[in-house]
């Protein structure tokens, strides 16, 4: 792991953010599974927004919905879902910062997440710029398909990596 990355963990370790998160996780009955469920439900919204849009652009799903209309309708859902994911995820991140910032799979998760978010942002911004931007000519349509394929891969890997953060510890680093 790069030094700057692990040092974020060291910085957060012992901070008031950690004590706050640990207080919530250990004091409120059922808080960990409830927050994890909120995190997964927000992932479901990611699936129902950007992933569904990707499948539409690739010609696999919802043929009656227009790409431009879907983009303006679904992208706000993605941004709200990601905000919910950030908040629900941060309870665990702040609770045990060293666990995450020293875990290579967490590093992978962020490495998939950042380009996935930037790609979605780019797609949304360009779509807002001009009505039917991504369907105007075949060059743009093929760019949209390439973006959709990459985006689909990245979001699946984000979810996959998220689940493996917990497993990598005992599979590869037996205590």
């Amino acid at each position: 792991m790069p030094d700057f990355f692990t040092s974020i963990g060291t910085l957060l370790d012992g901070s008031f953010l950690q004590s706050g998160a640990l207080w919530a996780l250990s004091t409120i009955p059922g808080f960990p599974p409830i927050i994890q469920t909120a995190h997964i439900l927000a992932i479901a919204v990611v699936m129902g927004s950007v992933v569904l849009l990707d499948l539409r652009i690739l010609g696999l799903a919802v043929p009656s919905q227009k790409i431009s209309e879907m983009t303006s309708r679904l992208m706000p859902w993605l941004w709200w879902a990601l905000a919910a994911n950030l908040i629900s995820g941060s309870f665990f991140l702040f609770g045990r910062p060293l666990r995450y910032f020293n875990n290579p799979i967490f590093g992978w998760k962020l490495s998939f997440l950042l380009p996935a978010v930037l790609l979605a942002l780019f797609f949304h911004v360009m779509s807002n710029r001009e009505e039917g931007y991504w369907e105007l000519n075949s060059k743009r349509l093929w760019s949209a398909r390439a973006i959709a394929l990459l985006s689909l891969f990245l979001w699946i890997m984000v979810a996959m990596a998220g689940r493996w953060i917990a497993y990598v510890e005992y599979i590869y680093y037996p205590a």
Binding site: I40, L41, I43, A44, V45, V46, M47, G48, S49, V51, L52, I156, A159, M160, R163, W164
Partner: peptide, 15 residues
């Protein structure tokens, strides 16, 4: 991991 992704997609598509 496949289970979580598939379950999220069930809910996301029915949503």
């Amino acid at each position: 991991s496949i289970h979580v992704i598939a379950a999220a997609f069930v809910v996301g598509s029915i949503l």
